[in-house]
Design a binder for these strands. Structure first.
Lengths: 228, 228
DNA sequence: CCATGTCAAGAGCACTGCTCTCGGTTGTGA
DNA sequence: TCACAACCGAGAGCAGTGCTCTTGACATGG
């Protein structure tokens, strides 16, 4: 019952992963907009219609690519964070930020797929939210643990003209019992991180400055100053 | 010689602007990827091939749309800045930041065209760099003038582990004789501003928090703290 | 008044996502 | 063992895209 079904299903799983693999290769070279089901099928030596046996639509294929990319980014950040001493919160912060940037620069098209202009007529299904929050969860954890260890100055300097934050339950859970000021500063730093990286990946910094590595380090240090 | 040619040329100019107008409408509703020359021609009741008399390629049409969008954003920011008292540097900063955000939220597809994932196989011609820097120039001017007026604390707190910035001549000119620390902090704030706005426009903040207006104000205030 | 240059339109090419049908294979329950 | 059902690949086809080339109509200027 197992091996018998496996004959077919193994071939199916094989071909499915083969499709995603070549699709990922196309995505990395041509970009999301240039990803063509027909081209993928052509590379695999099969009819374009056959691909639809494995992915009911291009969006479905895109979804698995998105999930894979989120996981790849998440893993990279998790590893960078884990490589540092647990109590070295600024070091963990810097390492995680650089991990995001390194991954983004190494996989610009995947980064564009995750954080760039949304693909038209594509609605991200529920399956993506888990992997999507993986890298962000690392950054949030660093902030929360730093706050618990008393290594965070953020909470001590609440901003005067600050209205209350209306956070979603998910985010509130991510930050546990951290005070609002901490969450607000973390949100600010989070978006700022991706602002720089996005500009760098999308070429907005192209004619602006060289030596981006050290300039980015400075940026991350400023963000850390807001937090730690 | 003038009026005679004008008969033809006026018709040509008329149709050209008519094309860009409907193209801009399509862009605003469908997005850059959904912009179709054939659809524009259909809306105008003419053959698709006729459009190519006015724009040699889709990229060319896209370029004028990009320039228009950059100018619209630039004008919005310039007006917001001009509406404030010249010496109220934090106020000008806040107003300009909010102007960028307001324009972006009002024109999400145009924003995506300017700051989102680059359009595949599209290379921005030189004509775009002028309008592109317009909105950024406003922010830079605020920082420079604040520094000259001695209203900038940024220069007083240079960052310890900071390598030298290798700026392009254009940017160096934009910031005149401002010290490196000021430029670095301005760069950081600039990217952070667009990081938040990009996340908001592209839906990254969708399930994260409500009351974005006040949360954004807080973000801008943090950025101001880094600068002023 | 006629040659010249401009223009819109149509056909056509190569490409896309996607659907449907037609055989062929494979797996399974009777 | 055999038949039936499920699955699978290939091909044709539809509607759409950007873009090119040719054709015929029109206005303009010498």
């Amino acid at each position: 019952m197992k091996a018998s079904q496996t004959a077919r299903e193994r071939a199916r799983a094989e071909l499915t992963s083969e499709i995603t693999r070549t699709a990922r290769r196309h995505l990395a070279t041509e970009g999301a907009a240039g990803l063509s089901l027909r081209a993928v099928a052509r590379d695999l030596g099969m009819a374009s219609s056959a691909v639809y046996r494995y992915f009911p639509s291009k969006d479905e294929l895109l979804t698995t690519l998105i999930i894979d990319s989120y996981n790849a980014l998440g893993r990279a950040v998790e590893e960078a964070d884990a490589a540092r001493d647990t109590s070295d919160f600024p070091g963990r912060w810097r390492a995680s930020c650089h991990a995001v940037r390194d991954w983004a620069l190494a996989h610009p098209h995947e980064y564009a797929l995750l954080f760039g202009s949304p693909v038209p007529d594509y609605r991200a299904p529920r399956d993506t939210v888990g992997p999507a929050s993986r890298s962000t969860a690392v950054l949030a954890r660093i902030v929360v643990e730093a706050h618990r260890a008393g290594a965070l100055r953020a909470a001590e300097r609440p901003h005067p003209d600050a209205g209350p934050l209306k956070l979603s339950p998910t985010v509130r859970e991510l930050f546990c019992d951290s005070p609002e000021e901490v969450v607000a500063r973390a949100l600010s730093a989070w978006t700022s991180l991706y602002g720089w990286i996005g500009f760098e990946v999308f070429g907005q910094l192209d004619g602006v400055l060289e030596g981006r590595e050290s300039a980015f380090s400075r940026h991350v240090a400023y963000l850390a100053d807001v937090l730690f």
